[in-house]
Every structure is written in C-alpha cells, then in structure tokens.
Write a protein that binds this DNA or RNA. Sequence first.
DNA 1: TATTGTTATACTCTATAACTATA
DNA 2: TATAGTTATAGAGTATAACAATA
Lengths: 166, 166
Amino acid sequence: MTTSKKAAAPRQSMVDEVYPTSVEGLDLEERLGYALRRAQLKVFKYFDEAMREYDVRPALFSALVVIEGYPGVTQSSLAQTLGIDPPRVVNLVHSLEERGLAMRVRCKRDRRSHGIFLTKSGETLTGHLKGLAEQSDLAATQALSEIERRQLLTLLRKVYASEETG
Amino acid sequence: MTTSKKAAAPRQSMVDEVYPTSVEGLDLEERLGYALRRAQLKVFKYFDEAMREYDVRPALFSALVVIEGYPGVTQSSLAQTLGIDPPRVVNLVHSLEERGLAMRVRCKRDRRSHGIFLTKSGETLTGHLKGLAEQSDLAATQALSEIERRQLLTLLRKVYASEETG
DNA sequence: TATTGTTATACTCTATAACTATA
DNA sequence: TATAGTTATAGAGTATAACAATA
C-alpha cells in the first residue's frame, strides 16, 4: 500500500495550478450536512435581504411568531421552543421591548416568571414580516416546483422532529 | 382600530403562565429557513459527535474532501469552492499543515499561488472520516427511508445549485 | 494596476458560569 | 434547595480592511 498507489504529495517543490470551481463529482455532494448548510445559506441570504429594511434577524423573527402563537409565553418556554439558551432569550426579548414590539408581564402565580406579549405594533409587524418571509422563501427556491417545495419541507420536518432526548 | 379588536397586551399587571412546548401549528412550521436550520442543527450534532475523537469540524472536513478530489487546488479556488472567505482558508490550511494532513507547494507558473496536497496520512484520515460522516448522516436521518434521504439530497442540491451571480 | 495569500480586526452567534429574586 | 431570569464572559464562525509578494 505504500508504493503502488500514486502519491498525493507532489514530487517537485513547485507545481502547476489546479483551479476547480465546483464540488460536482466530489463525495461532498453526497453529504447531507454540506447540502443543508449550502441550502440554508442561500435561504437565509434571501431572508436577510427581505428583512434588512426592518433589521430583523432569523432568531428575532422566530421569537415574534412564537409569541404571536402563544401570547404570554414565558422566557424559559420560549428558549425551549426555539431551541436556544435562556441568555439569548433575554437579549431577544430586551430588543423586542426596546423596539416597542413586545412587553414582559410578571406572572401572578409565579412571580419569578415573565409572560411575553406582542404589542399592537408588534402584532402588525409580525403579520407583515410573515408575508415577506413567505415571499423570500419562494424567491430562494425558484428552482423548485410547488410540490417539490412541500416535499422538502415535509422531509426536513421529519428529520428535525425526531429529536428524542439527545 | 383601538377598541374593537382583542388587545394582545394584557389588561392586568400580572398574568397566568403560558408554557408551549412545540412549534406545532405555528406559521414557523411553514418556514423553510426554520426547517433548514433545525434539520442542520441535528445533522451537525451527529456529525460533531462522530468527529469529536478527531477534533474535525465541518469546514475542515469539507476542505479535506475538496483537496482529495482536486490535488493541488489553490487556496483561492478552495475558498470559492467551499463558499468561504480567503482568510478562513488560511487558518484552515494552516491547521491542516500543523496536523500533518496537508502541505502547501508554491506553483511554478504563478509563484503567488500555493497548491494544496494531502499527505499520505491526510489521505488515510480523509478516507476514514468520509465513512464516519456517511454513518452519522444515516444516524441523524433515521426517520427517513433510503428513498426519502436521496429525495432530500436532490432537493437541497436543486436549491443551492441555482446560486447564479447573487 | 491587479491578484494571492496573509494579518489584524471586529462583529455576530452561541455556550457557560455565576449571580438575584423568588419559590 | 431549586428555578426564572439576568449578567458577564468567552469561544466559535464569519466578514472586512489593509498589507506584502508577485504578476
């Protein structure tokens, strides 16, 4: 095994240039993690463009949608639901409050907890942003038919939904 | 508009707790970016576990596979192929050299460029890691059939392959 | 002047540990 | 003592600007 195969390291001290421009044909094309990362990069790029005007990042958008769906959600529950850590939620909610989009209210039964609610303007903005997000998803996946887009979403959900315990 | 609709903000200064535990039924479930991020998080978690023993992160693994497929690739081409910036490639290649997995060789025609080659031990490790990566992909997507896994890969490629100019 | 590789820098994202106030 | 929220901090990952060597 040490002599018969063509060596990878060059025999000379200087070599000709090699300029690949794609990963086609590489085993990388078969790697799910790589494909997910590249696809996500593209979808997020479109998302960022669509949201730039509002200075809303993915995490903030997700928080808005969850709070809209569960008015009064506690910060710890929000952390669990979004799969992020409590300290991040603090910054997220603080930012929402600063911008007048949400407000914290102490829970009466457990005064350690805070329920989070969208303000009126938070509700309005969230509705608007959901429309923008949908459009940016469509733009980012122009290469897919409507059926394929639904298939993709279904398959992705199947992957991340089975998160079990660890 | 100020009186007829149920206000989102609470009337009281204290409220009952709300503890959602999933995003089911939320519009978030329809967002491609969210689904991609969650799926990627899971696949990367499995990948990290599989590679922990070798201290290999996704970017390093991708670099190894590209160099294996294109022996002598220049750093700028590697950057373009992986969709990362030149400064990151510097660190990546430096790390590979430090670990004896790859080496830089000046190009004879354009002495500004460096061709990157795997060492013998880099080749061996890359082959081994590719096997581990394949297994970790399978483990992370146990919820999918073989056909579904291929479908997912095909759809993701369709999305990121149409990256055009912007 | 333009390009390859490099250094320095900064900014975002994310994770951890420790603190407070309530329970 | 345990938990919700908070603060401080540090580490990845990523992007930008500026520089040296070469073209």
